[in-house]
Design a binder for these strands. Structure first.
Length: 271
DNA sequence: CGCCAGGACGCCC
DNA sequence: GGGCGTCATGGC
């Protein structure tokens, strides 16, 4: 990745990024496609940072109305620009199926998202579809001026007061998550750096967090790239292409490989 | 209309 | 420990 500063924009060159593939592949739910790119509210540790980013041609991106300082301190990290995805894909392509998946959507990157936002988002995701997940999160943020609520704010709610979300049986799970994070029962930053099995166990003490959601929080919200969420789509991939198990050489980055496979199998069946 | 969704829980055996 | 019905809601 290299970048240049131009007026109030940052021009980024990065061949291993595609906005459609990265921002609308089911790892993040708050990016909206607008005329000139994607717009979103991104939750950092303490504030909601907004960004408009557009893709002008293959490998070229404009980060609109941002400063070099903001780009370097926030967005460079969020888009995982310090990781060499070309090298990752070369490694993955040792495997035939992964080679096809990387070739199909080579512009996917693993975003480094906020753990709290991911926890809530993937609790909502259970037994749900992506358009509706986006709708629920949109209503949630809409209640806080467009920002993602802090644990303290959400901890004030109960299942009834969250009825406006129309999140169904998940509302009580959101309340439990907010209560535990706000009270300190759950320390997300400690979990993020804990041994992964301890981290899994701790996350699953939250109601509504099972194996799949815990794995998603670890992967998308804590950048634990060895985490490997298995949903209905990945089950199909494993059954069809990896009857003898997922290849060992990819296990250290299994979660990133999973992103390519997820996108590949989902779009394969659409045709 | 019925089937399904980036599943987890509670109960059963 | 594994199997199965249930859970709200709405996209398709």
């Amino acid at each position: 990745m290299d970048y240049t500063v131009k007026n109030n924009d940052i021009i980024v060159h990065e061949p291993d990024l595609d906005l459609d593939e990265t921002l609308d592949c089911g790892q993040a739910f708050r990016w909206k496609k607008i005329e000139r790119g994607y717009e979103c509210t991104y939750t950092g540790s303490f504030v909601n940072d907004r960004l408009t980013v557009s893709q002008t041609k293959k490998g070229e991106f404009i980060f609109h109305d941002t400063t070099e300082s903001d780009f370097l301190s926030k967005w460079l990290d969020y888009f995982d620009f310090n990781t060499d995805y070309s090298e990752l894909k070369r490694c993955f392509s040792e495997d035939e199926t992964l080679a096809k998946a990387c070739g199909f959507a080579g512009g996917i990157r693993l975003l480094r998202q906020d753990s709290w936002e991911c926890l809530i988002s993937f609790i909502i995701s259970q037994n749900n579809n992506i358009p509706r997940i986006k709708g629920i999160i949109d209503r949630l943020c809409g209640n806080y001026g467009g920002d993602f609520p802090e644990p303290e704010q959400l901890a004030k709610e109960n299942a009834d007061s969250l009825a406006y979300l129309r999140s169904g049986f998940r509302a009580k799970y959101l309340c439990d998550a907010a209560y535990k994070v706000n009270s300190g029962d759950i320390d997300l930053s400690a979990i993020a750096s804990a041994p992964i099995d301890e981290a899994r166990t701790a996350l699953k003490t939250i109601k509504g967090v099972g194996p799949k959601v815990a794995e998603c929080v670890l992967l998308f919200g804590m950048h634990r790239v060895e985490a490997f969420p298995v949903d209905v789509w990945i089950k199909r991939v494993l059954a069809e292409y990896y009857p003898n198990g997922f290849p060992d050489f990819a296990k250290d980055n299994a979660g990133i490989a999973q992103q390519y496979l997820f996108h590949y199998i989902r779009n394969l069946e659409k045709e």
